[in-house]
Amino acid sequence: MIQNQLLSINILILIAMACVYTTSDIDAKSYTYKKVRASNPWARATSKLAKTGVVYITSIHNTGERAVKIIGFSTNIANKVQLHKTVTENNITKMQYIKSLKIGPGKSIHIKPGGLHIMLMGLKRPLKENNQFPLIIKFETLGNLETMVNVKNFSWRQKKPLKHKHMHH
């Protein structure tokens, strides 16, 4: 009897753990290669005709004792991928192409809205919510860190956009 109860409690705990694991899996996934770790790569869902997209990575952490250098990105979903920085000078916003970016030992960089962003140019298909696509982060001498990017809803309140469908004119 007691054994049965213990067994059911165990199963419940296992289910709970599985739930926690899967939710954290969707929300924030980390990818590690040698001494670098990329956490939560995500892209904004785009509209149907969009030719550009954007990828953000919550953090890229260098756990090693030597500096690492990002020298580029690659993906099969777009013709061109570039790291850009949104810069505002004299009230005018510009995007600056960042050719390479150093991350010091023990340091992290954050690729987030309004600052650094990975721009996808010449999108081959629109980015749909809940889809995934591969993105490779290329490091000088170190090699390639392979990640999967989660496509999230446009608004980061996680609220579905209102749909205004015009079925007839």
Partner: peptide, 17 residues
């Protein structure tokens, strides 16, 4: 412009909220 993937959606999203 619609090709702008970072600044424009961020600004318009802030405006709608």
């Amino acid at each position: 412009y619609t090709f702008c993937p970072d600044a424009c959606p961020t600004a318009l999203n802030n405006l709608t909220i």
